[in-house]
């Protein structure tokens, strides 16, 4: 049999974004990854900086290098990432363990999928995330005002 070349049509990393044509859950999945990476990066730095206290170096406390407003704003961004990642993660725990996606049903057109079943949970979690975000913002304004 003759061998033909096949063209690799995998979308690659841009396929994660789906060229802007996909649903809300797709974007939450991307944002979950990005915020996770940001938090991990911060966490590793944080371990290093706070571990220095064993040698009497307190870089993050009042009057020290990392207590400057620019770092406080950076910390707020990490907090915002946490606010999203935590509540979206909680939604994912429920969804991925099959508790918020509904029961098996017979598909009757127009089809109802598990996406619409978990939407109320998504809305609640995003609202909680927004509340946490607002609290962090309030704290930042207070801290910068001091």
């Amino acid at each position: 049999m003759a061998e033909f070349t096949r063209f690799d049509n995998r979308l690659g990393i841009l396929g994660w974004l789906g060229k802007g044509k996909w649903g809300l859950e797709r974007y939450l999945y991307i944002l979950h990854r990005l915020t996770g990476l940001a938090i991990l990066f911060y966490f590793m730095m944080h371990i290093f900086v706070t571990s220095l206290r064993a040698y009497g170096i307190y870089l993050w406390t009042e009057g020290n290098f990392f207590h400057q407003p620019i770092f406080r704003i950076g910390e707020f961004l990490v907090f915002a990432a946490f606010a999203f990642h935590a509540f979206n993660g909680l939604r994912l725990v429920f969804v991925e363990l099959g508790f918020a996606v509904g029961k098996p049903i017979e598909p009757i057109f127009p089809y109802e999928t598990c996406i619409s079943k978990q939407r109320p949970l998504l809305v609640v979690m995003m609202l909680l995330s927004a509340v946490l975000f607002a609290m962090g913002g309030y704290e930042l304004i207070m801290a910068l005002g001091r």
Binding site: W22, V95, V101, Y111, T113, C114
Partner: peptide, 28 residues
């Protein structure tokens, strides 16, 4: 490796809802 982007269920032309099955499978 499924992270619940939900696209499979959204595009399924027969309403088989594969995303739901995978989440139930993870629980199992």
């Amino acid at each position: 490796k499924c992270h619940f982007a939900g696209e499979c269920s959204r595009v399924c032309p027969k309403g088989a809802d594969p995303a739901k099955a995978i989440q139930h499978m993870k629980r199992q």
